[in-house]
Amino acid sequence: MGLTSSILMSPFHLLLQQLANGFTIGAIYALIALGYTMVYGVIQLINFAHGEVFMVGAYLALTALLILGVAQPLTGVALAGVLTACVALAVGGCGMLGWGIERLAYRPLRRAPRLTALITAIGVSFFLQNAVMLLYGATDRRFPAFIPARRWEWGGTSLTLLQVVIWLTSGVLMVALQMLVTSTKLGKAMRATAQDPNACRLLGIPVDRIIALTFALGSGFAAVGGMLFGLYYNTVNFHDGYLTGLKAFTAAVLGGIGNIPGAMVGGLVLGILEGLGAGYLSSQWKNVFAFVVLVGLLVFKPTGLLGERVADRA
Protein backbone atom coordinates (compact mmCIF):
# COMPACT_ATOMS: atom_id res chain seq x y z
CA MET A 1 0.00 0.00 0.00
CA GLY A 2 2.68 2.45 1.04
CA LEU A 3 5.11 4.53 -0.96
CA THR A 4 8.11 2.31 -0.18
CA SER A 5 6.59 -0.72 -1.80
CA SER A 6 5.25 1.18 -4.78
CA ILE A 7 8.73 2.38 -5.71
CA LEU A 8 9.82 -1.21 -6.10
CA MET A 9 6.71 -2.38 -7.97
CA SER A 10 6.23 -2.73 -11.69
CA PRO A 11 3.57 -0.38 -13.10
CA PHE A 12 1.28 -3.35 -13.64
CA HIS A 13 1.54 -4.55 -10.08
CA LEU A 14 1.17 -1.06 -8.75
CA LEU A 15 -2.05 -0.76 -10.73
CA LEU A 16 -3.28 -4.08 -9.38
CA GLN A 17 -2.50 -2.96 -5.87
CA GLN A 18 -4.44 0.29 -6.23
CA LEU A 19 -7.37 -1.57 -7.74
CA ALA A 20 -7.41 -4.09 -4.88
CA ASN A 21 -7.27 -1.32 -2.29
CA GLY A 22 -9.92 0.72 -4.07
CA PHE A 23 -12.15 -2.30 -4.43
CA THR A 24 -11.90 -2.91 -0.70
CA ILE A 25 -12.86 0.57 0.45
CA GLY A 26 -15.43 0.67 -2.35
CA ALA A 27 -17.09 -2.44 -0.95
CA ILE A 28 -17.44 -0.64 2.39
CA TYR A 29 -18.84 2.50 0.70
CA ALA A 30 -21.31 0.28 -1.13
CA LEU A 31 -22.58 -1.26 2.10
CA ILE A 32 -23.24 2.19 3.54
CA ALA A 33 -24.63 3.56 0.28
CA LEU A 34 -27.34 0.89 0.33
CA GLY A 35 -28.89 2.52 3.39
CA TYR A 36 -29.12 5.94 1.72
CA THR A 37 -30.55 4.49 -1.43
CA MET A 38 -33.12 2.18 0.21
CA VAL A 39 -34.57 4.94 2.34
CA TYR A 40 -34.61 7.36 -0.57
CA GLY A 41 -36.19 4.72 -2.76
CA VAL A 42 -39.04 4.13 -0.35
CA ILE A 43 -39.86 7.63 0.94
CA GLN A 44 -37.76 10.07 -1.16
CA LEU A 45 -35.89 11.24 1.90
CA ILE A 46 -32.14 11.55 2.22
CA ASN A 47 -31.27 10.38 5.70
CA PHE A 48 -28.25 12.55 6.35
CA ALA A 49 -27.87 10.96 9.79
CA HIS A 50 -26.98 7.66 8.11
CA GLY A 51 -23.23 8.36 8.20
CA GLU A 52 -23.47 8.66 11.97
CA VAL A 53 -25.27 5.31 12.15
CA PHE A 54 -22.29 3.80 10.35
CA MET A 55 -19.94 5.40 12.89
CA VAL A 56 -22.04 4.07 15.78
CA GLY A 57 -21.81 0.62 14.17
CA ALA A 58 -18.02 0.81 14.25
CA TYR A 59 -18.11 1.82 17.92
CA LEU A 60 -20.58 -0.94 18.81
CA ALA A 61 -18.27 -3.51 17.22
CA LEU A 62 -15.40 -1.94 19.20
CA THR A 63 -17.51 -2.19 22.35
CA ALA A 64 -17.99 -5.91 21.79
CA LEU A 65 -14.23 -6.31 21.40
CA LEU A 66 -13.54 -4.31 24.57
CA ILE A 67 -16.08 -6.34 26.56
CA LEU A 68 -14.59 -9.59 25.30
CA GLY A 69 -11.05 -8.33 25.92
CA VAL A 70 -9.91 -9.01 22.37
CA ALA A 71 -6.50 -7.48 21.63
CA GLN A 72 -4.96 -9.64 18.94
CA PRO A 73 -5.77 -11.82 15.94
CA LEU A 74 -7.81 -14.93 16.66
CA THR A 75 -8.42 -18.19 14.87
CA GLY A 76 -10.94 -20.99 14.81
CA VAL A 77 -13.83 -21.00 17.23
CA ALA A 78 -12.64 -17.89 19.06
CA LEU A 79 -12.60 -15.95 15.78
CA ALA A 80 -16.07 -17.15 14.85
CA GLY A 81 -17.41 -16.30 18.30
CA VAL A 82 -15.93 -12.81 18.38
CA LEU A 83 -17.08 -12.08 14.86
CA THR A 84 -20.61 -13.17 15.75
CA ALA A 85 -20.62 -11.01 18.86
CA CYS A 86 -19.38 -7.95 16.95
CA VAL A 87 -21.91 -8.37 14.18
CA ALA A 88 -24.75 -9.07 16.61
CA LEU A 89 -24.09 -6.00 18.74
CA ALA A 90 -23.36 -3.67 15.83
CA VAL A 91 -26.19 -4.82 13.56
CA GLY A 92 -28.70 -5.25 16.37
CA GLY A 93 -27.84 -1.89 17.93
CA CYS A 94 -27.80 0.02 14.66
CA GLY A 95 -30.96 -1.69 13.47
CA MET A 96 -32.73 -0.41 16.55
CA LEU A 97 -31.08 2.98 16.16
CA GLY A 98 -32.28 3.26 12.56
CA TRP A 99 -35.75 2.19 13.61
CA GLY A 100 -35.73 4.76 16.42
CA ILE A 101 -34.50 7.59 14.18
CA GLU A 102 -37.35 6.96 11.77
CA ARG A 103 -39.90 6.66 14.54
CA LEU A 104 -38.86 9.69 16.57
CA ALA A 105 -37.19 12.06 14.12
CA TYR A 106 -38.71 11.48 10.68
CA ARG A 107 -42.18 9.97 11.06
CA PRO A 108 -43.66 12.98 12.83
CA LEU A 109 -42.34 15.12 9.96
CA ARG A 110 -43.46 12.98 7.05
CA ARG A 111 -45.82 15.65 5.79
CA ALA A 112 -43.54 18.55 6.63
CA PRO A 113 -41.36 20.35 4.03
CA ARG A 114 -38.11 18.64 3.00
CA LEU A 115 -35.99 21.23 4.71
CA THR A 116 -37.48 20.33 8.08
CA ALA A 117 -36.36 16.74 7.75
CA LEU A 118 -32.90 17.88 6.66
CA ILE A 119 -32.51 20.07 9.73
CA THR A 120 -33.70 17.19 11.89
CA ALA A 121 -31.09 14.92 10.30
CA ILE A 122 -28.37 17.42 11.19
CA GLY A 123 -29.67 17.49 14.75
CA VAL A 124 -29.65 13.69 14.99
CA SER A 125 -26.10 13.66 13.59
CA PHE A 126 -24.83 16.11 16.18
CA PHE A 127 -26.55 14.16 18.91
CA LEU A 128 -24.98 10.85 17.88
CA GLN A 129 -21.52 12.35 17.38
CA ASN A 130 -21.55 14.01 20.76
CA ALA A 131 -22.98 10.97 22.53
CA VAL A 132 -20.16 8.83 21.15
CA MET A 133 -17.58 11.50 21.95
CA LEU A 134 -18.75 11.69 25.56
CA LEU A 135 -18.76 7.91 25.94
CA TYR A 136 -15.52 7.09 24.13
CA GLY A 137 -13.53 10.33 24.04
CA ALA A 138 -12.61 12.67 21.24
CA THR A 139 -9.34 11.04 20.23
CA ASP A 140 -8.84 8.11 17.85
CA ARG A 141 -9.59 4.75 19.43
CA ARG A 142 -7.57 1.73 18.40
CA PHE A 143 -9.70 -0.95 16.81
CA PRO A 144 -8.17 -4.36 17.66
CA ALA A 145 -7.29 -6.36 14.55
CA PHE A 146 -8.82 -9.74 15.33
CA ILE A 147 -8.72 -11.15 11.80
CA PRO A 148 -5.53 -13.20 11.22
CA ALA A 149 -2.89 -11.14 9.40
CA ARG A 150 -2.52 -13.48 6.44
CA ARG A 151 -1.28 -11.88 3.25
CA TRP A 152 -0.49 -13.11 -0.22
CA GLU A 153 2.14 -11.49 -2.42
CA TRP A 154 2.41 -11.55 -6.16
CA GLY A 155 5.20 -9.58 -7.74
CA GLY A 156 4.88 -6.82 -5.19
CA THR A 157 1.09 -6.74 -5.15
CA SER A 158 -0.17 -7.85 -1.79
CA LEU A 159 -3.59 -8.95 -0.75
CA THR A 160 -4.60 -9.48 2.86
CA LEU A 161 -7.06 -11.95 4.29
CA LEU A 162 -8.97 -8.97 5.68
CA GLN A 163 -9.45 -7.56 2.18
CA VAL A 164 -10.84 -10.86 1.00
CA VAL A 165 -13.14 -10.97 4.03
CA ILE A 166 -14.41 -7.48 3.21
CA TRP A 167 -15.09 -8.38 -0.43
CA LEU A 168 -16.90 -11.57 0.46
CA THR A 169 -18.97 -10.04 3.25
CA SER A 170 -20.09 -7.16 1.05
CA GLY A 171 -20.75 -9.43 -1.90
CA VAL A 172 -22.87 -11.88 0.08
CA LEU A 173 -24.84 -9.11 1.81
CA MET A 174 -25.56 -7.29 -1.44
CA VAL A 175 -26.75 -10.44 -3.17
CA ALA A 176 -28.91 -11.26 -0.14
CA LEU A 177 -30.43 -7.77 -0.17
CA GLN A 178 -31.12 -7.92 -3.87
CA MET A 179 -32.91 -11.24 -3.39
CA LEU A 180 -34.87 -9.88 -0.47
CA VAL A 181 -36.04 -6.88 -2.46
CA THR A 182 -36.91 -8.75 -5.64
CA SER A 183 -38.41 -11.96 -4.31
CA THR A 184 -39.71 -11.73 -0.77
CA LYS A 185 -43.03 -10.44 0.47
CA LEU A 186 -41.24 -7.72 2.43
CA GLY A 187 -39.27 -6.68 -0.65
CA LYS A 188 -42.40 -6.44 -2.78
CA ALA A 189 -44.11 -4.43 -0.06
CA MET A 190 -41.09 -2.08 0.05
CA ARG A 191 -41.25 -1.49 -3.68
CA ALA A 192 -45.02 -1.04 -3.59
CA THR A 193 -44.71 1.44 -0.70
CA ALA A 194 -42.27 3.43 -2.82
CA GLN A 195 -44.80 3.60 -5.65
CA ASP A 196 -48.13 4.21 -3.90
CA PRO A 197 -48.32 4.11 -0.10
CA ASN A 198 -52.05 4.76 0.09
CA ALA A 199 -52.86 1.97 -2.35
CA CYS A 200 -50.69 -0.24 -0.10
CA ARG A 201 -52.71 0.68 2.95
CA LEU A 202 -55.93 -0.33 1.22
CA LEU A 203 -54.43 -3.79 0.75
CA GLY A 204 -53.55 -4.05 4.43
CA ILE A 205 -49.82 -3.43 3.97
CA PRO A 206 -48.55 -1.73 7.16
CA VAL A 207 -46.72 1.09 5.40
CA ASP A 208 -45.29 2.66 8.55
CA ARG A 209 -43.77 -0.64 9.62
CA ILE A 210 -42.34 -1.22 6.14
CA ILE A 211 -40.68 2.21 6.24
CA ALA A 212 -39.25 1.60 9.73
CA LEU A 213 -37.95 -1.79 8.60
CA THR A 214 -36.28 -0.14 5.62
CA PHE A 215 -34.42 2.20 7.98
CA ALA A 216 -33.49 -0.72 10.25
CA LEU A 217 -32.23 -2.81 7.36
CA GLY A 218 -30.14 0.00 5.87
CA SER A 219 -28.72 0.75 9.31
CA GLY A 220 -27.76 -2.91 9.76
CA PHE A 221 -25.79 -2.78 6.51
CA ALA A 222 -24.08 0.41 7.66
CA ALA A 223 -23.18 -1.32 10.94
CA VAL A 224 -21.40 -4.12 9.09
CA GLY A 225 -19.66 -1.43 7.06
CA GLY A 226 -18.61 0.24 10.31
CA MET A 227 -17.10 -2.94 11.70
CA LEU A 228 -15.18 -3.61 8.47
CA PHE A 229 -14.04 0.02 8.39
CA GLY A 230 -12.64 -0.31 11.93
CA LEU A 231 -10.83 -3.50 11.00
CA TYR A 232 -9.41 -1.98 7.81
CA TYR A 233 -8.09 1.27 9.27
CA ASN A 234 -7.42 0.00 12.79
CA THR A 235 -8.74 3.17 14.40
CA VAL A 236 -12.12 4.80 14.79
CA ASN A 237 -13.05 8.33 15.64
CA PHE A 238 -16.37 9.92 16.52
CA HIS A 239 -16.34 12.05 13.39
CA ASP A 240 -15.56 9.25 10.95
CA GLY A 241 -19.27 9.12 10.10
CA TYR A 242 -19.23 12.53 8.49
CA LEU A 243 -16.63 12.05 5.77
CA THR A 244 -17.33 8.39 5.06
CA GLY A 245 -21.06 9.04 5.14
CA LEU A 246 -20.66 11.77 2.55
CA LYS A 247 -18.59 9.49 0.36
CA ALA A 248 -21.17 6.71 0.61
CA PHE A 249 -23.86 9.26 -0.24
CA THR A 250 -21.78 10.21 -3.29
CA ALA A 251 -21.64 6.53 -4.20
CA ALA A 252 -25.42 6.30 -3.94
CA VAL A 253 -25.88 9.36 -6.16
CA LEU A 254 -23.25 8.02 -8.56
CA GLY A 255 -25.23 4.82 -9.02
CA GLY A 256 -28.55 6.65 -9.22
CA ILE A 257 -30.12 7.24 -5.83
CA GLY A 258 -32.99 4.88 -5.09
CA ASN A 259 -31.39 2.14 -7.17
CA ILE A 260 -29.93 -0.77 -5.19
CA PRO A 261 -27.61 -2.27 -7.81
CA GLY A 262 -26.63 1.34 -8.54
CA ALA A 263 -25.44 1.84 -4.96
CA MET A 264 -23.25 -1.22 -5.25
CA VAL A 265 -21.74 -0.11 -8.54
CA GLY A 266 -21.40 3.46 -7.28
CA GLY A 267 -19.56 2.33 -4.15
CA LEU A 268 -17.10 0.21 -6.09
CA VAL A 269 -16.49 2.85 -8.76
CA LEU A 270 -15.91 5.54 -6.16
CA GLY A 271 -13.57 3.29 -4.15
CA ILE A 272 -11.54 2.46 -7.23
CA LEU A 273 -11.38 6.11 -8.32
CA GLU A 274 -10.16 6.98 -4.86
CA GLY A 275 -7.62 4.14 -4.88
CA LEU A 276 -6.27 5.18 -8.27
CA GLY A 277 -6.22 8.84 -7.27
CA ALA A 278 -4.37 8.07 -4.07
CA GLY A 279 -1.88 5.88 -5.91
CA TYR A 280 -1.16 8.04 -8.94
CA LEU A 281 -1.92 11.61 -7.94
CA SER A 282 -1.57 12.15 -4.25
CA SER A 283 -2.91 10.35 -1.24
CA GLN A 284 -3.31 13.69 0.50
CA TRP A 285 -5.95 14.60 -2.05
CA LYS A 286 -7.74 11.30 -1.60
CA ASN A 287 -10.80 12.80 0.05
CA VAL A 288 -11.21 15.44 -2.61
CA PHE A 289 -11.96 12.98 -5.43
CA ALA A 290 -15.27 11.92 -3.97
CA PHE A 291 -16.48 15.50 -3.86
CA VAL A 292 -15.27 16.30 -7.33
CA VAL A 293 -17.32 13.31 -8.43
CA LEU A 294 -20.35 14.45 -6.42
CA VAL A 295 -20.30 18.01 -7.71
CA GLY A 296 -19.65 16.81 -11.26
CA LEU A 297 -22.59 14.43 -11.07
CA LEU A 298 -24.98 16.95 -9.62
CA VAL A 299 -24.08 19.32 -12.43
CA PHE A 300 -23.87 16.95 -15.40
CA LYS A 301 -25.76 13.75 -14.62
CA PRO A 302 -27.90 14.05 -11.49
CA THR A 303 -29.65 10.77 -12.23
CA GLY A 304 -26.41 8.82 -11.80
CA LEU A 305 -24.86 6.03 -13.84
CA LEU A 306 -27.74 3.55 -13.82
CA GLY A 307 -30.44 6.09 -13.39
CA GLU A 308 -33.40 7.42 -15.15
CA ARG A 309 -36.50 6.60 -13.19
CA VAL A 310 -34.75 5.31 -10.14
CA ALA A 311 -36.76 6.81 -7.35
CA ASP A 312 -39.11 3.88 -6.98
CA ARG A 313 -36.93 0.90 -7.67
CA ALA A 314 -36.09 0.74 -3.97
Binding site: K185, K188, A189, R191, Q195, A199, L202, L203, R309, D312
Partner: peptide
Protein backbone atom coordinates in the same frame (compact mmCIF):
# COMPACT_ATOMS: atom_id res chain seq x y z
CA UNK B 1 -59.87 2.67 -5.62
CA UNK B 2 -60.79 5.23 -8.23
CA UNK B 3 -58.18 5.48 -10.97
CA UNK B 4 -56.92 1.90 -10.58
CA UNK B 5 -53.84 2.70 -8.56
CA UNK B 6 -51.95 -0.43 -9.59
CA UNK B 7 -48.22 -0.47 -8.79
CA UNK B 8 -46.84 0.48 -12.20
CA UNK B 9 -43.32 -0.84 -11.77
CA UNK B 10 -44.29 -4.16 -10.28
CA UNK B 11 -45.36 -7.06 -12.47
CA UNK B 12 -48.98 -8.12 -12.81
CA UNK B 13 -48.25 -11.18 -10.67
CA UNK B 14 -46.52 -9.11 -7.97
CA UNK B 15 -49.50 -6.76 -7.86
CA UNK B 16 -51.81 -9.71 -7.34
CA UNK B 17 -49.55 -11.26 -4.71
CA UNK B 18 -49.57 -8.00 -2.75
CA UNK B 19 -53.36 -8.11 -2.81
CA UNK B 20 -53.02 -11.20 -0.63
CA UNK B 21 -50.50 -9.51 1.70
CA UNK B 22 -52.49 -10.18 4.86
Amino acid sequence: PEGRRVFPRLTVLENLQLGAYL
